[in-house]
Computed example of a mutant assay.
Amino acid sequence: MQHLDSILRNAAVFHHRWGWWPMEGWLRAFEDLGLARHDPLTGVWTRGSAARGAGPDSARQS
């Protein structure tokens, strides 16, 4: 998933500034696909298990 890290980072910056999560529908859809994970204890969104190894650096590794 291209740009997932940027989306998660920008959403976190927005949340920190404004106190609510933008694009919550996108974040939940990413979660449904296993691409993102929300930790209810910390309130943080992170890369999910289906997205691990699919980041920008993975294309460079051969």
Rank of each mutant, 00 (worst) to 15 (best):
L35R: 04
D39S: 03
R60V: 04
A51E: 14
G25H: 01
W20C: 08
S58R: 06
E24N: 09
H3G: 08
H38E: 13
A36M: 05
V13C: 01
R52P: 12
A29S: 06
S62C: 03
A12E: 14
R9K: 07
W18C: 05
D32T: 06
L27H: 05
S58F: 01
F30V: 07
L41Y: 07
Q2F: 03
A59S: 15
G34Q: 10
A29R: 12
R37H: 15
P56N: 12
W18M: 04
D57T: 06
Q2D: 15
M23P: 06
V44F: 03
A36W: 00
F30W: 08
G48K: 03
P56D: 07
L27F: 06
W45Q: 03
T46N: 04
A50R: 05
S62F: 12
F14E: 02
G55L: 05
S6W: 08
D57I: 04
G25I: 00
S58Q: 10
G25V: 00
W21R: 09
M23T: 10
R52D: 13
R37T: 13
R47G: 06
P56K: 07
D32G: 05
R47D: 01
R17T: 08
R52H: 15
L8F: 04
W18Y: 15
E24P: 12
G48D: 14
N10Q: 10
A50C: 01
A36Y: 06
A50K: 05
D39Y: 05
G48S: 02
A12D: 12
L4K: 00
R60N: 13
D39F: 06
G55M: 02
A12L: 04
H16N: 13
T42M: 00
N10C: 11
F30Q: 09
R28I: 04
A11I: 10
E24D: 15
M1A: 07
W21M: 10
A59D: 15
S62N: 12
A54H: 14
P22V: 05
R17D: 15
D39P: 13
R28Q: 15
W18K: 04
G48H: 01
D5S: 08
G25E: 07
G48N: 03
G34P: 09
H16R: 09
M23E: 15
W21I: 00
L35G: 04
A29M: 11
A29E: 15
F14C: 04
G19R: 04
S49R: 01
H15E: 14
H38R: 14
R47W: 05
R52S: 14
L4Q: 02
E31L: 03
H16Q: 00
P40T: 07
V44K: 13
V13G: 00
R28T: 14
S58C: 07
G55K: 01
